[in-house]
Amino acid sequence: MKGSATSQQPLPELKPTAFGDSMYRVLGTAARGVYRSLLSLQLEGKEKLPRDRGYIVISNHLTELDPVTVAYPVFVTGTLPRFLAKESLFRAPGLGWILRTLAHIPVARGSVDARKSLETAQNVVDGGGAVIIYPEGTLSKDPDGWPMAGRTGAARLALATGAPVIPIAHWGDQDFLPPHSKPSILPRKKVRVKVGTPLDFSHIVQSEPGKKYTRSELVELTDFMLDAVTELLEDIRGEKAPEGRFNPATGQREIRG
């Protein structure tokens, strides 16, 4: 049937290339200039980002502008950040070519497609790049903007690649671009971004090639990641996060036992 998922040709294997990296640097430099012209950015801790190897960044997710905000410290330290995005975007005319050329990572449902996403992420990390992923999986629904209950994708990616995991928290870009809304340019908004130290989660689970992890291990690691991001965000906001974590499925803040 025309246009069905079964009739679509699989995407080619995506990996960083010299041409794609050069194009990325040009586009990224232009985006960086526009960002700084519109927003007042305070960046802390970028020296904690690895310079000699690829890594994974985890962050809170407040607005559609987050990809630029979170990528900023990565890009200015000389590493090219890649994002996970819906596979359908990689098939769109124009945009799809750009995403494929820049070696961003398509995500589709199904065990085979999920494995391809991990393989692409591994290519990025092996090439010295950074993969940015949001443990929440989507924009936070927390009424006060704190990280909400997460999904296990970030934990799976970290364990599959064995790459260092760096938490980054940010606050303020949601004032410029509220979720699902139009930009609010004036007055000029202030954005704070803080980079944390690489996470050590060996007390929870060891990353081993080919190992299968239990659901409880993945959930515990996801919570650990979100706790690290929340701690950075508390420092940025100058206040303590409420107990527990908002669960969008129940509409309530829950405390794990």
Results as ranks from 00 to 15, higher is better:
Val107Asn: 00
Ile236Phe: 10
Thr77Ser: 13
Arg256Trp: 11
Gly137Cys: 08
Gly210Asn: 07
Phe224Ala: 12
Tyr134Asp: 06
Val165Glu: 05
Gly96Ser: 03
Ala158Phe: 00
Thr197Glu: 15
Thr250Trp: 00
Lys182His: 13
Arg256Val: 14
Thr197Cys: 11
Trp171Ala: 09
Thr250Gln: 00
Pro135Leu: 01
Lys141Glu: 12
Pro164Gln: 09
Lys182Met: 14
Thr152Cys: 03
Met225Asn: 10
Met1His: 14
Gly257Val: 12
Lys15Glu: 14
Gly78Ile: 09
Val74Tyr: 00
Thr214Met: 09
Gly162Ala: 09
Val112Tyr: 14
Ser184Asn: 15
Val165Lys: 06
Ala85Lys: 04
Lys116Ile: 01
Gln8Pro: 04
Arg53Met: 13
Ile133Thr: 09
Glu208Arg: 13
Thr29Lys: 12
Asp66Ala: 01
Glu220Leu: 10
Val112Arg: 15
His61Arg: 04
Glu47Trp: 07
Arg245Leu: 00
Ala18Trp: 14
Lys211Ile: 06
Leu11Asn: 05
Arg215Ser: 12
Ile185Gln: 06
Leu49Glu: 04
Asp227Pro: 09
Phe19Asp: 04
Ala155Arg: 01
Leu232Asp: 06
Trp146Cys: 04
Pro167Arg: 00
Ile98Trp: 11
Gly150His: 00
Lys194Cys: 11
Trp146Met: 04
Ala163Gln: 07
Thr63His: 05
Pro164Lys: 07
Asp142Tyr: 05
Val68Pro: 10
Lys190Cys: 08
Leu233Gln: 13
Gly172His: 06
Pro167Ala: 02
Glu208Thr: 13
Gln206Val: 13
Leu199Ile: 12
Arg215Thr: 14
Ser140Thr: 15
Leu139Thr: 06
Ser88Glu: 15
Pro16Ala: 03
Asp173Lys: 01
Asp200Ala: 10
Ile98Phe: 13
Lys212His: 13
Thr69Gly: 00
His104Thr: 05
Leu139Ala: 04
Asp235Cys: 07
Leu80Arg: 05
Met23Gln: 11
Val26Arg: 03
Pro248Gln: 10
Asn247Leu: 03
Ala30Asp: 04
His170Ala: 14
Pro178Phe: 08
Val74Cys: 03
Pro187Thr: 11
Gly196Asp: 06
Leu62Pro: 02
Val191Tyr: 08
Leu102Pro: 08
Glu64Asn: 10
Ser184Gln: 15
Leu95Ser: 02
Gly162Trp: 09
Gly28His: 03
Ser140Ile: 01
Leu62His: 08
Lys48Gln: 14
Gly54Gln: 02
Leu49Gly: 08
Lys212Ala: 12
Gly150Ile: 00
Lys15Leu: 10
Lys48Gly: 02
His203Val: 08
Pro209Leu: 08
Asp235Arg: 12
Asp200Cys: 10
Thr120Ala: 11
Ala154Thr: 04
Arg109Lys: 12
Ser140Met: 03
Ile132His: 00
Gly137Thr: 07
Phe90Tyr: 03
Leu80Trp: 01
Pro106Phe: 05
Phe246Gly: 01
Pro50Arg: 09
Ile185Thr: 13
Arg25Cys: 04
Tyr55Phe: 15
Thr138Met: 09
Tyr72Asp: 12
Arg156Thr: 10
Met148Phe: 03
Asp113Lys: 14
Leu186Phe: 15
Phe176Tyr: 15
Leu177Glu: 04
Asp113Met: 12
Gly94Pro: 02
Ile133Gln: 02
Ala71Met: 10
